[in-house]
Amino acid sequence: MRARLVSIASRYNYSSDLGALFGAIDGQKFAAATPTAKARHSRKYFGRERGVVAFTSLTNHVATLTNLIGAHEHENHYVFDLCYHNTTDIAPTIITGDMHSINKMNFAAMYWFEMDFAPRFTNLQAQLKHLFCGDDIEQYDNFLIKPAGQIDLLAICDDPCVFEQIIASLSVKEMSQQALVRKLCALSPRHRTRRAVFEFDKLVRSIYTLRYMRDPQLQRNVHRSQNRIEAYHALRGFIAEVSGRKHLIGKTDHDIAINNECGRLLANVVTAFNSVLLRRDLSQ
């Protein structure tokens, strides 16, 4: 019995890497018992009903923060906001996510605020088209892995004030990441601000992609971190189904947000209780 508990503990240990604290982000769909302004249609997940997405940040097994967004909105527009607004004492050093968490500025934004962004790639071969180099691309003709293009370093270094203004706006929370992404995408592809941000994102993403391909341990840690948030979603979905259906109750968006927070609190209580039981059994 003790050997079995030790096996379980090693399988669900709190730290994937003793040198880093991994946090995971992902969204979970919930139907809205009463349609609200934020609840939107999604035939794939809700059928004829409407619902919302609970975008959650999980550090090891602890859900530190959750935010409700519309089912029609892109999750990658809220990655930085969710991580930067974490006011708990648990501060992850590496943030993992799935392919839905990637866009053309998340690597850059997380780098600016000293947070390592480590998404899980489902297809490494497909990531080769996102590899870029800073030098002349012809130098890599004899390499096994060839870059898809060259980064415009002049666009990055031409005007450092562009980055300083964006970083200042995000740090003082005058602008959300969602608003910033919309403004950048509305600009012309040749606009210097948009080009500088997107080119810098290519640089950071290329460095991470090469690390991810060369480091099997990093791949295992990222996979384990994402598997943990999937396990949390299973627990969170079971809690929501206690009333009979997997939905959030409330007549307004504020009521639904409170119901979602209550579910997160209950999930953390269950996780803490199970951890206490497991620790007690292992210490005997």
Rank of each mutant, 00 (worst) to 15 (best):
M1W: 11
R2T: 13
V6C: 00
A9C: 10
R11L: 13
N13A: 13
G19I: 03
G19L: 05
L21I: 14
A24P: 05
A24L: 03
Q28A: 07
K29W: 08
A33E: 11
T36C: 10
A39Y: 01
A39K: 07
Y45E: 10
G47A: 06
G47R: 01
G51P: 05
G51F: 01
V52C: 04
V53R: 03
T56D: 02
N60T: 15
V62S: 07
A63K: 02
A63C: 11
T64G: 02
L65R: 08
T66R: 01
N67A: 08
H72S: 15
E75D: 00
L82F: 01
G97E: 01
D98S: 00
D98M: 00
H100F: 06
N103S: 04
Y111M: 09
Y111R: 13
W112V: 10
F113R: 08
M115E: 03
A118P: 02
A118C: 11
P119R: 10
R120H: 04
R120S: 03
T122Q: 07
T122D: 09
L124D: 08
A126N: 10
Q127A: 07
L128P: 00
L131F: 09
C133P: 00
G134T: 15
L154R: 09
D158A: 15
V162P: 09
I166G: 11
S171T: 07
S171I: 04
S176Q: 06
Q178E: 13
V181T: 03
R182N: 14
L187M: 15
P189K: 12
A196L: 09
Y208I: 13
T209H: 03
R211T: 13
R211H: 13
H223A: 09
H223Y: 02
Q226N: 08
I229M: 00
E230I: 05
A234H: 12
R236N: 15
R236H: 12
F238Q: 14
I249Y: 12
G250C: 08
D253N: 13
D253C: 06
H254T: 07
I258P: 02
E261W: 06
C262A: 11
A267S: 12
V270C: 14
T271F: 01
F273Q: 12
R280P: 01
S283C: 07
